[in-house]
Design a protein around this nucleic acid. Sequence first.
DNA 1: GTCTATAGGCGGATAGAC
DNA 2: GTCTATCCGCCTATAGAC
Lengths: 182, 182
Amino acid sequence: MKTNKEEVLQKALAVIWEQGYHDTSFQDLSDACGINKSHFFHYFKGGKEDLMTEILQLTHEVYIGMLKRLAETKELNTDEKLQKIKEKLIKMYTAKGPGNGCLMANTSLETTGKNYKFTPIVQAFFRDFIHYMAVIYQERHPVEHAQSLAEEVVQEIEGAIMLMRVFHDTSYLERALTRANR
Amino acid sequence: MKTNKEEVLQKALAVIWEQGYHDTSFQDLSDACGINKSHFFHYFKGGKEDLMTEILQLTHEVYIGMLKRLAETKELNTDEKLQKIKEKLIKMYTAKGPGNGCLMANTSLETTGKNYKFTPIVQAFFRDFIHYMAVIYQERHPVEHAQSLAEEVVQEIEGAIMLMRVFHDTSYLERALTRANR
DNA sequence: GTCTATAGGCGGATAGAC
DNA sequence: GTCTATCCGCCTATAGAC
């Protein structure tokens, strides 16, 4: 079957987001992508960890890119920016139903303790997430307060995503994002 | 070697808390517990999932038991109760360093998508966590507000534990628990 | 670039002696 | 209750034909 790497990456992301890193085998992935198992080693020389690294980098680009563009635009006021973020994040985190949670958090928690090389990517994600939220809060609050506000809000969002997953109820995330307008 | 089930359970809990469910093999566990691999199937007829179930139940008892006792005591005022919870949770969640996070959250996120039987236990944990926090907040706030306050606070605590893990920095949890005095 | 075949290892689990 | 031995299957990864 004719495929390209981008497409494979997208489909693999969806499967791993749903099933988790450890619970997804190359068999699952090749079924989902319609390519042969061994073909993954052609695309991703370093095997599963390489594949996952690229998936996480892609996720970083999509989420943080969205945030950065919103934080830096002059076309919207603060209220509108926070509203837009709310809409986007709800859409992105519930696209596949309430059950998948945050891929970054999942991966981080799933790879506790042993030597995986995902930590820097996960750290960069949350650092940037907090950073761009702080940039927006600086439109209304002094710098130091904006920073701690951003940390609180990101924590609440991540906690809400986890409870959303556990109870299969999207309202946790909606309420947390409503409270994020401060 | 002479052992008993309780002891094995405690040690297995520590290893799985540190390494994660999927990344811990019976080999790891038998090394840590000083008993033979196959002995686990004597203690836990249903294999790894049974072992994990008992570990999660034990965790529920320890954490929720602590909360329940504090919520129901007449000996402390609200401030003192919240202070005590802060101290206890910091101690419990950072006992093995900042890197392990919340076993319930970890397990939940690690077992996305496939058919594990841990979901009800994890749900009970968070339901009870929120419940007893709400009981305490009712000393100061109307019932409905106490409930949503408890949900917010638990979300923030869980988000803080995750960031604590990611950045190896216990101050996230400390600040979240300081803000829990409302 | 895509496939077949297969290696090599480890993980969970069982049988059964003592 | 504890240990030895062992099975089976799956999983990651590689070699190599086309």
